[in-house]
């Protein structure tokens, strides 16, 4: 609990002593937001770490070879991730549900195991050294971008685009009858998601001196999916809350010590079982009532 105590008693010390943690929360929140966009449009895409890798490697390589300014590195990484997103998205988006999930897993594994580990320029299994990394100063960039991302997504979900995504998620057939071009809106969501993941990758690479190719595999995608689903994928804030909760979890539950994995697994199950729609979601914060919980008297059948 010392993390929380410190946060409230001495926020400045907290800030300086946990800068990297705060940055990581920010990165994870952006990633979770990237997952949010695809889930919001009804697609179970697990490609985020792949786009993240593209963003990260592009940014670091640009810096290493051409010494371009940071903004250019980030922009290039993000743009390339978006481009690959469009190319990958076109063929896979007609897949549904778990098939899309598996196809995107195929994509990230093929990318990280097949491409990154075999290209000399990526440093193969050793990764890259990023001498210009800024673990402390990076936090500002990360938090500002997170705020911008959340704001933009919030605005997008409230407009025509957001309504179209919701319609596609809820019922594709009915969405078509309302004049919504389903494949188009799915692709838009997929590309936005790729852009965000690419950006998160570039931003993350700026925080660490080593770019580790093993960071972009299936465990990462599982983690990001968990952020989004546990937080609640019906609301922009849900994934951010999920990322915040799960990233700080090991610190909050320090007493669990070595058993943190066991505890977090149990908490994960408990939350999803009692609250399948996620922590933040429609229906307020109410948990699903267990069977043994006393239920209110049911209303008499109305006569209307």
């Amino acid at each position: 609990m010392d993390l929380l105590t410190q946060l409230f008693t001495d926020p400045f010390a907290f800030w300086t002593s946990h800068t990297l943690l705060i940055s990581q929360i920010g990165i994870n929140s952006i990633l979770a937001s990237s997952m949010f966009v695809v889930l919001y449009s009804g697609q179970l895409s697990l490609a985020a770490p792949g786009f993240m890798a593209i963003g990260a490697y592009t940014a670091v390589l640009m810096d290493l070879y051409w010494h371009t300014p940071l903004a250019v590195d980030f922009a290039a990484g993000t743009a390339l991730a978006g481009l690959v997103g469009a190319i990958v998205g076109l063929p896979v988006l007609r897949l549904r549900g778990v098939f899309l999930a598996i196809a995107t897993i195929g994509f990230i594994e093929a990318l990280s195991l097949g491409v990154i580990l075999n290209l000399p320029i990526t440093g193969e299994g050793l990764g890259l050294k990023n001498i210009d990394a800024d673990p402390v100063g990076g936090v500002n960039i990360v938090l500002i971008s997170l705020a911008v991302v959340v704001y933009l997504l919030w605005r997008l979900t409230k407009g025509r685009l957001g309504y179209a995504w919701t319609a596609v998620r809820q019922d594709e057939l009915a969405a078509r009858s309302q004049g919504i071009d389903v494949p188009r809106y799915k692709l838009i969501a997929f590309v936005i998601s790729a852009l965000l993941a690419g950006y998160a990758g570039a931003a993350e690479s700026h925080l660490y001196f080593i770019l580790d190719p093993n960071e972009y595999g299936v465990p990462r995608t599982v983690q990001v999916l968990t952020f989004a689903v546990l937080g609640g994928s019906g609301n922009v804030l849900g994934p951010v809350v999920g990322a915040l909760f799960l990233t700080t979890f090991p610190f909050i539950f320090k007493q669990a010590g070595d058993y943190i994995g066991v505890v977090s697994g149990a908490v994960l199950i408990a939350i999803i079982v009692f609250r399948p729609q996620g922590i933040v979601g429609r229906g307020g914060f109410a948990f699903v009532r267990p069977r043994w919980w006393p239920r209110p008297q049911s209303r008499a059948p109305s006569t209307g």
Binding site: V222, T226, G261, G265, A266, I269
Partner: peptide, 16 residues
């Protein structure tokens, strides 16, 4: 998707 998460949770427990 909820079942996906709950089985991930169990896997986490076993492996940990």
């Amino acid at each position: 998707i909820a079942a996906l998460i709950s089985t991930i949770g169990l896997a986490l427990i076993i492996i940990a």
